[in-house]
Structures are given as C-alpha cells and as structure tokens.
Design a protein around this nucleic acid. Structure first.
Lengths: 251, 251
DNA sequence: GTTCAAATGTGTTATTATGACGCAATGTAC
DNA sequence: GTACATTGCGTCATAATAACACATTTGAAC
C-alpha cells in the first residue's frame, strides 16, 4: 500500500500528510490507537497521505479507515505540524530499500512533510481495529504507557490531548465514548481520566446534571458490587445543541 | 516577487501556503489587514508560500513580513483549509500571462493548495503596513466592511475571528492592541468590538480587575470630554502568566 | 458662574455557581 | 445479622455574575 502510494505520488497532495490521534476509553483508562511500524522498533499514529481529489477533512477519514479499518468517526482537526527537520531520516535509504521502492521515485519522501493532526473520541468497544496490512500491528495502548513514537508523533499526541482537555470545558464529552446506558460514576471516570485528576463525586453530578444533556433512566445497573448505581443516557438533541453553542459563554 | 517564487518553486513547500489574518483595533473598530490584488477586483489576506528551509511557524512570520512589512508579531496558527476546489481557477491562464509566468513552470500552481491560517492581534498604530510591491495596495479595513475576498479567504477570516472570540474566554487580550497606557473604557471597547456585543461597564471593570493583570496608574487621561478616566497599564509579568495558565479552569 | 449632560468611580443586591463536606440508603461479603 | 464500600441527596460558606443606584467629575451651554 505504502509502496503503491509512493510510486503513484502524482495522485497525492505533495509534501502533506495527515495523522490521527484516536482516543478510546476502557477499563478506566484513556487509550490511544497506535500502529507498530514493521521496519522499526517505534510505534506510530495512524496516518497517511492526502488524495488530490479529496478535501483534507475527507482525506482524514480515508486515511484512518485505510490504516485501521475504523469507520464512522468524527475527526476534528486540531493543528498542523511543520518543523523543518520533523521527518528527516524517516524515509532513509534503508527504509526505501526495505519497502522495495525505487530510490528515484521515493525522492519526494525525503523532503519535509507538513502533517495535519486530527483527533477523535470513539467508543472503545465499538471500534474494532482491523489490520489492513499484514505487516502492521494495530493496538489500543494506554495513553500513560505509550511507547516511543516515530518522528514528532509524541508531540502531536500531546497536543491532541491538550486540545481535548481544553475543549472539555467548552463542550460536553462522552457521546461516542460510553455505551448507550451508563452510570454517573462511569461518566465521571471518563472526565477524570481525560483530565488526569480527581473530581468530587457530588459536585460533578450536580454540574453535569445542570447542563441538561442527560436522561435519568428508570433503571439501575445490576451485577455490581455495592449499591447499584442508576443508569443514564444522553439526550442527543440537547447534547448536540450544547455542542453547537458551547457550555459557558464567558464574556 | 511572485514570479520569482513561482519560477523557483523548488525552494518552496509544494501544495502548501500560509494566510495571515491580522487584526488591529482603532477608532473603536476591529480592523483587518488586507491586500488588493492587482489583477482582480477582489482583496486578499496577506499570504504566501513556505520556504522549504523554514518551520511553518517561522514561514508565517516571513510571509507576513514580505507581503506587508509587518514585523515582530506573534502569529497563532488556528486552522488548515484544504477543500478540493478552494483554489480552482485562481491561477488561470490569464493570471499566469498577466504575471508573465511560463505556463509550464506555473503548472504546479493550478493544483489544489492547502493553506494554513495564522492570526495575530497587533497595535494598529505601531504597525505601519509597507507596500512591498508597487502593484499592491495594503490597507486596514474595518472588519464589518470587508469587501469580496479571493478564494476561501472570507471563510478563513471568519474562522480566525471565531477562534479569537473563543480564546477571549481562555486568555487575556489587549497587550498588543492598546497603547501602553489606556483607560478602562478603551479596554472595554476592545472587548465589545471583538465580541460584537455590549458589556456592562461596572461588571466588566470588576471582572477584568480581578484577573490581576492591570496596573492602575496614578494618572488620568487629559483632554477628554466629561470626567477624565484613570489610566491603566498591563502588568506584563502577570499577563504572561495568565496567558500561559489560562483564565478559567472549568473542571 | 451656574447648570446640564455625559461619562466615570464605587458601590448594593439578588441570583447562581462552586468547592468542601455530612449523612442516610443500598447492596455485597462475611 | 454486621461491616464496608458505594451511591443518592443533601447542607453550608464562599465566589462569581447580572442588574442596577448613586455620587462625582468634567466640558460645554447658557
């Protein structure tokens, strides 16, 4: 696939790439979808090149799908990365040889690539990463245990998380991260995990309830230790409304 | 200049450009720095191409300086724009002919360009736009009277203003927009102009004072009608601290 | 100089949001 | 049953916010 792209580079936007930071939530941990590159010990964000006949926002969806099989995800652009040396030595001679790429055709790869970062929050259980290349390994990795990444992917990941934390204050989060029915402690854990800090249980409940995006269901979670917590669902209509208008108006 | 760039495109990042949205404040109006393109009736954001040997953030500064002469400005990246048809017909045959560019060498220009948007807030009075090309006109234009712009520049400008308004709730604004000594009504007008809405005078004063970034000077403005307002200056140290940490923590 | 209008400086008050807790109810483990 | 962790629903003090009152200052009109 990479070989195909590289040798048909006329069909791709030159000097530009896309990298996706896909966050999932499972087991009270924030997970990131990463790819193990075959010819290196390092891992990588799912990324790729931009077809010349696609909007970049569309290309981001395409790229993510091609690398991971993930579909139906709302990707949010958060930044462009373009330091001069960001991809120095990434497609060196050995790599090109490994990939069986004609050095002449691979020449354009040795120049600086600017990459556009996209991030998304997805339901860990609903998203089943598919290995699209037999030589790649795709895995959900706990964001606190992220191994060494290629290029500036660590910086990209950090920036994505930073953006996510900021946006948590401006919009509601959870719709694509939790099952349809969820408990208050589960929602709180999500927030705590993203923010990496403890929140007061009772104050959290009050604040999140006041936003008005939750439906309290007449149902309790069962098979749990201790007191059974009530179940909630998102009121999608109100949720989307708040998403559009933002949480707090500030000035 | 453009001809030089185009015919030496090996020195520039292919398929990528930068556009700058420079906001100024004067006469209680939000101004935008625009350039009148010679071979069109439309106006344009100051933009340009990215030298292959510069970080994109550095290139943004370079581009702005080359097009307008503006120096020493902190540019903030806010989005990338990459719809397929965004620059269709922009460098058509007539334009290339007008610019006296070899059609073969100008071919790369007809492909889709992705542009990275940067915005800045600058002191209207300190920034004196310099005409760097005799055929271009550079002007501060009231943002409410922006004429038709080329390509998707209107969309870029709107997005910049949107970002600015959001960031107004996350960080203090004014340091580069007001003279060293300013009055409370002046600062309020700035906020009102950016947000395009009226704020209560007394509540504004309390809130902005509580942030702790202002020094109340032992001096009043003179030569004004009615009661002379007190003068303030920014406490740069505290201002920068708040810039770094943000205003409200939310969760 | 007196008076007026417009703007500034400094409040008050009611309402709401926030942070830090208390305590009873629920359900499991033993 | 008792012990214990967890949930649900409170309280209270404090801070932030919105709406508004009133006296003061100043240039200008008379």
């Amino acid at each position: 696939m990479l070989k195909f792209i590289i040798e048909n580079n006329e069909n791709y936007q030159p000097g530009l790439s896309i990298d996706c930071v896909i966050f999932g939530f499972h087991d009270n941990q924030l997970k990131v979808l990463l790819i193990k590159v075959p010819h290196s010990e390092k891992w990588s964000l799912p990324g790729g090149f931009i077809p010349i006949d696609q909007d970049i926002d569309t290309a981001a969806v395409t790229v993510l799908n091609e690398r991971t099989g993930v579909e139906g995800v709302f990707l949010r652009q958060f930044a462009a990365f373009g330091k001069i040396k960001r991809n120095d030595d990434h497609f060196g001679k050995e790599v090109l040889k490994y990939l069986d790429i004609d050095p002449e055709k691979g020449k354009w790869l040795t120049r600086r690539f600017v990459t556009i970062g996209y991030y998304a929050l997805v339901d860990f259980l609903k998203i089943v990463p598919v290995r699209t290349s037999s030589s790649e390994i795709i895995e959900w990795i706990d964001h606190k245990e992220v191994p060494e990444l290629i290029l500036d992917h660590k910086e990209i990941l950090d920036k994505a998380l930073d953006t996510l934390r900021t946006e948590l204050n401006l919009m509601p989060v959870g719709y694509n991260l939790l099952p349809e029915k969820f408990t208050m402690p589960e929602l709180q854990k999500l927030y705590e995990t993203i923010l990496d800090k403890k929140l007061d249980r009772r104050n959290f409940m009050r604040k999140i309830t006041n936003i008005g995006i939750l439906n309290k269901l007449d149902e309790k979670k069962n098979n749990v230790a201790h007191k059974a917590p009530n179940l909630y669902s998102f009121d999608k209509e109100k949720y989307d409304e708040v998403l559009k208008n933002g949480l707090n108006q500030g000035w």
